[in-house]
Design a binder for these strands. Structure first.
Length: 951
RNA sequence: GGUCGUUUAGCUCAGUUGGGAGAGCAUCGCCCUUACAAGGCGAGGGUCGCUGGUUCAAGCCCAGCAACGACCA
């Protein structure tokens, strides 16, 4: 083996080999249980970030763990077409390279362009995923716009429409004025900010007066410009100030429109002025109020969110109406919405109608893609009626058919599902699944799998002109079909029978609504068992937290704190990192700041750590679904761990290769250490399996770390040295046998988390265990073997450790070189002490560096010594010429203080009658034993203190 | 405002049915001992956010408060 651990020299080649050998594919033996994970399809425009690395490490660990247990495992790979994001990428590209817009190309040519982009540059993320060691079945890679998947999407749309679960309507939607498309409520980010509240005076018509005798109402609004579209003012029917005015009218300033005063609970008497202007075409709450009171709707904004040349007037049902005229004051026409706001406020002020302006914290909706403020807009859109779909989806989680890990995320799921709103699925984009709907010239809509099918079904001959709906479907509509669409639905394929329902979904909490909930709804509606029972898409949803930067801030490009997982794998120098973080930015003005924090945080760039160290770190921090602050030091620690494993393996191989490791059935004489490490290892297997079975990757990582470093390396390897250097043939053989077999099995145990280093070492170690197999990937996962846990060996070795630690402690405290051999005297030894000493002299001499071990009789006087206690046994190291009196007194003093403190606590507890009467006997016995031991310890330490003090 | 979560060593985090406060990293001291200085050996370090309650016993259970965070409105 190479003298130093160098991940870069092993990882890439291994992955290519695995992939070429087809180890990632399901083995196909359907007599074995299947185990399936569907990867959350990454955005085809995306690149790998920490969240991907985190989730994929978990998925790969699970899939490797199950594969090694012989299951027919499928980890399905693919990407999604990311409608808006992809279209934006290509639009920017043609703008930059050819100075063209998509309209210059036209729809068909533009889509061709997008496909070209997709085929050349799309999915670079899948190459990055290979670097992580992900054992995905690449031959089955899917894309949400590929042919089969598009069939599934169309089929679902048509069937839902035929079942009345999809409808079209003119509704208020979230409109992105920059991207010119509707988006669903989930794609809106509400941001808190310090805004303003304008108090506007609205004169009452026909001489009406308020209870206080005023001839006007004051409405408070955060959006004064929308007053151009007001069709009412609401007051609370219980509000004595104004309820007398219900039914009266306002004369709306600027447009001189008469609008009614209505009584509605929406007007909060406590808030603002108690009077609310109602603009049904530009506000979701007002829309509802308008519907309740049959107020017409006046649209005053263009799709750019500028003031229209002429308003559009609709009835509550969305039909064109002439209830009001459509004239808008000339001066505002064509104004951008915020310019119009300023102008209108100024005009109110000029007219003496601006009462006041207050600071007012409010939440403002932003489009998560375009980044501009969303405008509620009255448009024709397609909707999924989600309520009926949600019912079954809720039940599946209630009944435990689907479990969330950690469970608290079920609350989030339920609260959203129980209050679910209809889902706007149409998008005014070109890139995506075009909606399979056609209109005749009268505007009548027909839905079908093709124009031909539509004509046939509705007996429309060639004379009837049909025009296809131009809109495409929300990308999440197709992602919602991921679990069954990838397996060949709507065909009833063998894959569906074998791999569906899938087992585990690993995802972030942020897409529970976007994706998880919708996937459950869609799957349960379309996938049925033979007996008609709905199939769930997956049995467990493992929800991860977010990985944040070292200060707990969310990673984002605009903050410049994004960490590329591959930079941690390969390393990156500071200049490249700065260039990478500040290049290609949406807001170049932030570059300087980003450069500064980058230079500060990563003064020396990022070192290479290798994929295994990254994966181990991610596993180690995967605890309970909460967010994690990324800590570079932990990554370093786990790289050191990989290095430790590497070097320990080198030791094992150096000792065992070309030696007799028990392969030839010659006699073996196992040492205490051999028996002990087997037992320790078995307990590790048990802990590790339990952790993986319960999704506690952190506990699995911890168990592996603890065993490998603190037991196997720190103790066992050291304990093999006296045997391998001085033991008999049979002892050496047994120890070599234990070394190679424990290591071999340990590598299998760790493989799901750190696949590369384990495979590399395993290739060398396995032959020494008489194993012939091509890869560790398909070797069996270790099982707990209780009969290999030798209790007596465990106890004896624990005693041995304590003995050695006691000597080392004295050396450390007394500044005695570890190289200096010591003589030790033992007093008050029990029979079992004597046996243990006799059996383990070689170990003691070697690990504690003792030249002589001498037993004293109980009444024998010992020379002045540094002392340690092990049970009743006294370990004495004669001080002559070695020990500093003051230092030894200080050392004893510290121990005494600690022992006395403990004793006091235990004694206090035991003298409490209530404790003795009520606590379980076992607990009391334990305390009594502790008390006795502590008393002895205190006693002996005092004696020792006196002895030393008397010198 | 509602829901959920978090608060444990300097930092990042574990702590399973209530029964002696843990890990990694960082810190301090000593060591280039033939697997490993990305290391070895030893040591120090915590009022478990605050207050109260239940209990023989609370980091853990209950109530209230505070701070922070997420989602929803």
């Amino acid at each position: 083996m190479e003298k130093t651990y160098n991940p870069q020299s092993i990882e890439q080649a291994l992955y290519q080999h695995w992939e070429a050998q087809g180890y990632f594919k399901p083995h196909g033996d359907t007599s074995k249980e299947s185990f399936t994970i569907m990867i959350p399809p990454p955005n085809v425009t995306g690149s790998l970030h920490m969240g991907h690395a985190f989730q994929q490490t978990i998925m790969d660990t699970l899939i490797r763990y199950q594969r090694m247990q012989g299951k027919n495992t499928l980890w399905q790979v693919g990407t999604d077409h990311a409608g808006i994001a992809t279209q934006m990428v290509v639009e920017r590209k043609i703008a930059a390279e050819e100075n063209k817009t998509k309209h210059d190309y036209g729809r068909e040519k533009f889509i061709e362009k997008v496909w070209q982009w997709k085929n050349h540059s799309g999915g670079s993320i899948t190459k990055q995923m290979r670097r992580l060691g992900d054992s995905l079945d690449w031959e089955r890679e899917r894309f949400t716009m590929d042919e089969g998947f598009s069939d599934a999407v169309q089929e679902v749309f048509v069937r839902l429409y035929e079942e009345g679960l999809i409808y079209r309507g003119k509704r208020l939607v979230n409109w992105d004025p920059k991207l010119h498309t509707a988006i669903s409520d989930l794609e809106v980010e509400n941001k808190e900010q310090q805004g303003k509240m304008w108090h506007l005076r609205y004169p009452l018509a026909d001489g009406a007066q308020t209870a206080e005798g005023k001839d006007y109402l004051v409405v408070a609004t955060t959006r004064p410009e929308t007053m151009l579209g007001d069709t009412g003012v609401a007051v609370n029917p219980a509000d004595p100030r104004y309820n007398g005015l219900i039914g009266k009218e306002i004369l709306l300033p600027i447009v001189n429109r008469r609008i009614p005063i209505v009584g509605d609970e929406h007007a909060d008497m406590e808030k603002g002025t108690g009077c609310v202007k109602i603009t049904p075409a530009h506000d979701f709450n007002d829309y509802e109020v308008g519907k309740r009171h049959q107020l017409p709707m006046i649209n005053i904004l263009t799709l750019n969110a500028d003031i229209r040349e002429q308003a559009e007037v609709f009835t509550t049902q969305g039909e064109p109406s002439d209830a009001y005229d459509n004239v808008l004051p000339e001066k505002y026409r064509g104004m951008e919405r915020f310019a119009a706001r300023d102008a209108i406020v100024a005009d109110f002020e000029a007219a003496g109608l601006l009462v006041k302006i207050e600071d007012h914290p409010n939440t403002v909706p932003y489009g998560d893609r375009g980044g501009v403020i969303i405008e509620p807009m009255l448009t024709d859109q397609w909707y999924v009626r989600t309520k009926p779909l949600a019912e079954e989806a809720i039940r599946a989680v209630e009944d435990g058919e689907i479990k969330f890990v950690p469970q608290q995320y079920e609350n989030m799921y339920f609260s959203w599902m129980r209050d679910i709103q209809d889902w706007c699925i149409s998008r005014q984009l070109w890139w995506g699944h075009q909606i399979p709907a056609w209109y005749d010239e009268a505007g009548q809509v027909y839905v079908g799998r093709s124009e031909q099918e539509v004509r046939q079904k509705h007996q429309l001959d060639e004379g009837v002109k049909l025009r296809r709906d131009e809109d495409v479907l929300d990308t999440w509509f197709s992602s919602g079909l991921w679990t069954f669409g990838t397996l060949g639905w709507p065909e009833q394929t063998d894959d569906l029978a074998t791999f569906h329902p899938t087992n585990v979904l690993v995802t972030g909490f942020d897409i529970i609504f976007f994706w998880v909930a919708r996937m459950i709804m869609m799957t349960m509606h379309f996938m049925k068992d033979k007996d008609g029972k709905s199939q769930v898409p997956f049995k467990t949803v493992y929800v991860t937290g977010l990985i944040r930067d070292e200060n707990g801030a969310k990673m984002s490009k605009s903050k410049g704190n994004v960490l590329d997982p591959l930079d941690m794998v390969d390393g990156i120098d500071l200049e490249s990192l700065v260039t990478k973080r500040t290049g290609n930015m949406m807001q170049p003005q932030l570059a300087q700041k980003i450069e500064k924090i980058t230079r500060k945080t990563f003064a020396n760039g990022i070192e290479a750590h290798g994929t295994d160290a990254l994966r181990f770190t991610l596993a180690a921090i995967a605890s309970t679904g909460r967010d994690i602050n990324w800590d570079m030091h932990r990554l370093e620690g786990y790289r050191n761990f990989c290095n430790k494993l590497w070097n320990a393996s080198r030791y094992v191989l150096m000792q065992c290769e070309e030696q007799d490791c028990g392969q030839n059935d010659q006699p073996m004489d196992f040492s205490l250490a051999d028996r002990w490490i087997q037992g320790q290892y078995q307990q590790t297997v048990k802990a590790c399996r339990e952790a993986l079975d319960s999704f506690r990757f952190d506990l699995a990582a911890q168990a592996l770390y603890e065993f490998t470093w603190n037991q196997f390396c720190d103790w066992y390897l050291e304990l093999t040295k006296p045997i391998l250097f001085k033991g008999s043939e049979a002892q050496m053989r047994a120890t070599r046998y234990t070394l190679v077999n424990v290591l071999e099995s340990l590598l299998r145990l760790m493989h799901p988390i750190i696949p590369f280093i384990t495979e590399t070492i395993w290739q060398r170690v396995a032959p020494l265990c008489r194993l012939k197999a091509d890869t560790i990937m398909l070797a069996p996962y270790p099982q707990y073997e209780a009969d290999k846990v030798d209790e007596m060996a465990m106890n004896d070795l624990e005693w041995l450790k304590q003995f050695i630690l006691a000597i080392r402690n004295i050396r450390g405290e007394m500044d005695i070189s570890p190289n200096k051999p010591l003589s030790v005297l033992l007093r008050y030894t029990s029979d079992s002490d004597n046996r243990r000493i006799e059996e383990n002299k070689a170990f003691l001499s070697s690990l504690a560096k003792l030249e002589q071990i001498q037993l004293l009789q109980a009444d024998e006087v010992a020379p002045a010594s540094a002392t340690a206690l092990l049970g009743e046994m006294e370990i004495l190291i004669p001080m002559a010429g070695l020990i500093d009196k003051e230092a030894e007194l200080a050392r004893i003093g510290r121990q005494l203080e600690k022992a006395q403190g403990d004793l006091q606590r235990v004694t206090g507890k035991l003298s409490n009658e209530n404790f003795v009467n009520k606590a379980p006997a076992m607990v009391i016995d334990k305390e009594r034993a502790k008390q006795a031991e502590l008393e002895l310890t205190v006693d002996k330490l005092r004696q020792q203190q006196a002895t030393i003090a008397a010198l």
